[in-house]
């Protein structure tokens, strides 16, 4: 490493289910350079100081969504956050808030993945179309209606930012609801009625109280709070008209 090497203290919230009754903090002194991310700091710990520290990562370039953790209390991608910004004070890393800790910085993502599957995150074509009929056409403006919501990388930072999810894990939550909106808002899609059943439920859009922190922490500018709250109006209209319109979706 370069000679202008500095040392930073990284506090890691450890949890080893076979030995720890509850999570405990452990501090490591890590030499670092200005171009090192928090993820690289953890990799240094694992390679040179303590091989038992567990954490997830893959792309180390903010696209796979696996390295999310609380860094000094804020949900962040550790590969996109730099150690130099915490020097000389040091930093604390913890598993993503509101999610069960599996081990150290690794959370249990079962709930997220189950919900992800449940909302049918794929285009359900409006009308069947034969191959000879060619592709589905879309104007740039039609694309703009869903494009930002399609940028989600499933990092779950928004779940760690959402107190409503922390208080009631039944709430579908920001990222998944944003993805639901992404498909519903696609001009080629005709699956709204199927998805609205979940969206209009108590655990759907209405579980959100517009805290707005999800949109603040999202590393991809998805703005889940917007995806959710713009649907409340339609949901309310549906609620009052479902008695008069046959087949009105939702509960």
């Amino acid at each position: 490493m370069a000679e202008n090497e500095k040392i930073i203290e990284i506090e890691v919230l450890r949890y080893r289910p076979e030995q720890d009754k509850e999570p405990v903090l452990q501090t490591y002194k890590v030499p670092f350079t200005d171009d090192m991310s928090v993820l690289q700091g953890l990799q240094y710990i694992k390679d040179y100081l303590d091989g038992t520290v567990s954490f997830r990562w893959s792309c180390r370039m903010a696209i796979c969504g696996s390295c999310g953790m609380m860094i000094d209390g804020k949900p962040k991608l550790s590969c996109k956050t730099f150690l130099r910004d915490y020097y000389p004070g040091g930093l604390r890393v913890e598993a993503l808030a509101h999610l069960p800790i599996e081990r150290d910085l690794v959370v249990d993502a079962t709930d997220f993945v189950t919900k992800l599957e449940s909302i049918k995150p794929y285009i359900i074509p409006k009308e069947p179309r034969a191959l000879e009929q060619g592709e589905y056409l879309q104007t740039p403006q039609q694309r703009d209606m869903y494009e930002q919501f399609s940028s989600c990388i499933n990092c779950m930072l928004c779940y760690a930012a959402c107190p409503q999810y922390g208080l009631n894990p039944k709430f579908t939550g920001p990222g998944i609801l944003a993805l639901m909106h992404r498909y519903n808002a696609d001009s080629r899609d005709g699956g709204q009625a199927e998805r609205n059943e979940l969206g209009y439920a108590d655990e759907g859009y209405w579980g959100c109280t517009a805290v707005g922190y999800c949109s603040e922490v999202c590393p991809k500018g998805v703005d889940p709070a917007n995806a959710i709250n713009q649907n409340k109006m339609n949901s309310a209209i549906n609620y009052f008209t479902r008695f008069v319109t046959p087949g009105g979706a939702g509960k």
């Binding site: 509101h98 800790i101 805290v211 707005g212």
Partner: peptide, 23 residues
């Protein structure tokens, strides 16, 4: 299974982040 997922308490959650206090 040796799994024993740990669920953290939400007590005092709104004091955890200035954003929550503003909310």
């Amino acid at each position: 299974s040796n799994r024993r997922p740990y669920v953290r308490s939400m007590d005092g959650w709104w004091k955890r982040d200035p954003y929550f206090i503003r909310y």
